[in-house]
Computed example of a mutant assay.
Amino acid sequence: MSEDVAVATPFRTATTVVVRYSFQAVCDGVLKTPMVEGWSQAHDRLDGLLAPSALG
């Protein structure tokens, strides 16, 4: 299984992540964890650090 996510908006960091799991049960288990929220928070902070106003 794989989950592909791509988001591109003005002044945002675009990232594509491909994660492959050998078993559907493992994929389902991972998706039930708060990992997605943590990943999103980390990238939101990165967006802030890379924003044109922060660089300039």
Results as ranks from 00 to 15, higher is better:
residue 2 S to Q: 15
residue 2 S to C: 07
residue 3 E to T: 09
residue 4 D to F: 06
residue 4 D to T: 11
residue 5 V to F: 07
residue 5 V to C: 09
residue 5 V to P: 02
residue 5 V to D: 13
residue 5 V to I: 15
residue 6 A to G: 09
residue 6 A to C: 09
residue 7 V to M: 06
residue 8 A to Y: 05
residue 10 P to R: 07
residue 10 P to F: 01
residue 12 R to Q: 11
residue 12 R to E: 10
residue 12 R to T: 08
residue 15 T to H: 08
residue 15 T to Q: 11
residue 16 T to K: 10
residue 16 T to H: 12
residue 17 V to I: 12
residue 17 V to P: 00
residue 17 V to Y: 05
residue 18 V to R: 15
residue 22 S to W: 03
residue 23 F to T: 15
residue 24 Q to F: 03
residue 24 Q to P: 13
residue 26 V to P: 00
residue 26 V to Y: 06
residue 26 V to S: 15
residue 26 V to C: 12
residue 27 C to R: 11
residue 27 C to H: 11
residue 28 D to C: 07
residue 28 D to P: 02
residue 28 D to R: 11
residue 29 G to N: 07
residue 29 G to K: 08
residue 30 V to Y: 02
residue 30 V to G: 01
residue 30 V to D: 01
residue 30 V to S: 02
residue 31 L to A: 14
residue 31 L to C: 10
residue 32 K to V: 09
residue 33 T to N: 06
residue 33 T to S: 14
residue 33 T to V: 05
residue 36 V to N: 06
residue 36 V to Q: 09
residue 36 V to L: 09
residue 37 E to T: 14
residue 37 E to V: 12
residue 38 G to C: 06
residue 38 G to N: 09
residue 38 G to W: 02
residue 39 W to H: 07
residue 39 W to L: 10
residue 40 S to D: 10
residue 40 S to G: 04
residue 40 S to E: 11
residue 41 Q to Y: 01
residue 41 Q to P: 00
residue 41 Q to D: 11
residue 42 A to W: 02
residue 43 H to T: 10
residue 44 D to E: 14
residue 45 R to C: 01
residue 45 R to G: 01
residue 46 L to M: 12
residue 46 L to W: 02
residue 46 L to G: 02
residue 47 D to C: 13
residue 48 G to C: 05
residue 48 G to D: 11
residue 48 G to K: 04
residue 48 G to T: 01
residue 49 L to W: 02
residue 50 L to E: 05
residue 52 P to L: 01
residue 53 S to G: 06
residue 53 S to C: 03
residue 53 S to R: 04
residue 54 A to Y: 00
residue 55 L to Q: 11
residue 55 L to V: 14
residue 56 G to M: 05
residue 56 G to F: 01
